[in-house]
């Protein structure tokens, strides 16, 4: 029901459900794609907040392998478009 940007912010509300209650595990996943407005300035501002490994893992579980395993230092347009797609256009339902 949520986009991967939200999945990257959510934690489990049950105390001690794993070491840091993050990230939530997917179950019976289906995905939905919905176009969103591309805004590179938003993405650049949000980048420092991302739990990168959790995002890449989540994207791969949903079949998207466009993101590199390490967060890149050079933010070129292709990378930002992939990041935009993963964060805001892929919805786990």
């Amino acid at each position: 029901m949520v986009r991967l940007i939200t999945h990257n912010l959510l934690a489990c509300h049950v105390k001690g459900c794993n070491t840091n209650n993050f990230p939530l595990q997917f179950r019976d996943i289906q995905i939905e794609l919905r176009e969103a407005e591309f805004n590179p300035d938003f993405l650049k501002g949000f980048m420092p907040k991302i739990e990168w490994k959790a995002l890449v893992d989540a994207a791969r579980q949903l079949g998207d392998t466009s993101l590199p395993l390490e967060q890149p230092e050079m933010l070129d347009d292709e990378f930002l478009k992939n990041l935009h797609h993963v964060l805001l256009e892929v919805k786990e339902v």
Partner: peptide
């Protein structure tokens, strides 16, 4: 997101 404002649902 469906939830309670008293819950701890976020990083």
């Amino acid at each position: 997101v469906w939830g309670d404002v008293l819950g701890l649902g976020w990083r």
